[in-house]
């Protein structure tokens, strides 16, 4: 680097060195991060891949969960996450529409925003206890897909609200003006112009939040997940097995913890692969929507 000082332009070796040290340290930090992710994935893949086969994915556990597969847990997790999205998406988008399009800055709106941020910061086990107290006991849903979905829905709600609000706010004002100037009402403008344009952003945020919901253990262990079942659920009032809880059970609460190690790794591999695929889906959605954006 060349620096100007009273002696004119002289090369400052010290500055070069400082810059290099800084560069190496940020580079190392980035590398470390990638390394941690690769290490976790690698460890799980190496230990888990052996357990993965068709039978593992399509049959229920057998012989005190030391044999057989994890099919009921995969199905349960699928139901719970879809349920959570079904609960949180309409509510979250509605709240985002209010905040982005209608709310005028005032103390009430500020209070709502603070509450949403608080909701995002609540530990998941607290959600689990809330779900137990409110949905399972007070509303009498029992430990069920319904109660678990509602609880997971509460967890992903703030993420969906923030993502949707951002997406709605990024819709150019000129689109709204164009529609309003044609004598179209505000609500119709939101329905027909704003939401379709914001949709890909809303979906990206929602899919990412689903990835989080799929991996949560604490909120479902009191509200939906069952220790063991070979039955698939028949209604939303049935208990289900779920992948994260199944992993927890196999690793801590079973009778034959050591014997089920391969199954544990297998289940973990299935779970993170699911979440990984969901996140890839969100990324593809984002790339796709950026490509189609031309304003």
């Amino acid at each position: 680097m060349i620096s100007a000082n009273k002696h004119g332009f002289t090369l400052s070796k010290w500055r070069y060195l400082k810059q290099d040290i800084f560069l190496v340290s940020v580079w190392f930090s980035a590398l470390l991060l990638a390394g941690i992710v690769i290490a976790i994935f690698g460890y799980i893949i190496i230990n888990g891949i052996g357990a993965i086969n068709w039978e593992f994915l399509t049959t229920p556990p057998r012989e005190m969960m030391t044999k057989g597969g994890i099919m009921p847990a995969i199905v349960g997790t699928f139901y719970l996450t879809c349920g959570a999205l079904l609960v949180a998406l309409p509510l979250g988008v509605a709240a985002a529409i209010y905040l982005a399009e209608y709310a005028k800055d005032g103390s009430v709106v500020r209070f709502i925003r603070i509450m949403i941020n608080c909701l995002a910061g609540v530990p998941s086990v607290v959600f689990g206890l809330f779900g137990l107290g409110f949905f399972v006991i007070f509303l009498g849903f029992g430990s069920s897909i319904l109660a678990g979905s509602l609880t997971l829905g509460c967890i992903i709600l703030p993420t969906i609200i923030s993502a949707s609000e951002e997406a709605i706010k990024s819709v150019p004002q000129t689109f709204r003006e164009a529609s309003l100037a044609l004598g179209i009402s505000k609500w119709q403008t939101i329905q027909k112009i704003v939401l379709p344009v914001a949709l890909s952003g809303i979906m990206t945020g929602s899919v990412l939040s689903v990835g989080r919901a799929a991996g949560e253990t604490a909120p479902i262990m009191f509200t939906a997940a069952t220790f063991f079942t070979t039955q698939l659920p028949e209604s939303i009032f049935d208990e289900v097995m779920a992948l994260p809880y199944h992993i927890y059970v196999l690793a801590t609460a079973g009778t034959y913890i050591e014997e089920t190690r391969p199954l544990q790794y297998g289940a973990v591999l299935v779970l993170i692969s699911l979440i990984f695929m969901i996140n890839i889906g969100a990324i593809l959605l984002r790339i796709y929507s950026r490509k189609n954006k031309r304003w």
Binding site: A178, S179, L180, A181, L182
Partner: peptide
């Protein structure tokens, strides 16, 4: 105002077709 805007249209500075 919605009825007013139906009768009195507007064209803006920057072309703003819908996507």
């Amino acid at each position: 105002p919605v009825e007013v805007r139906k009768r009195i249209g507007m064209v803006f500075q920057k072309p703003n077709p819908f996507p």
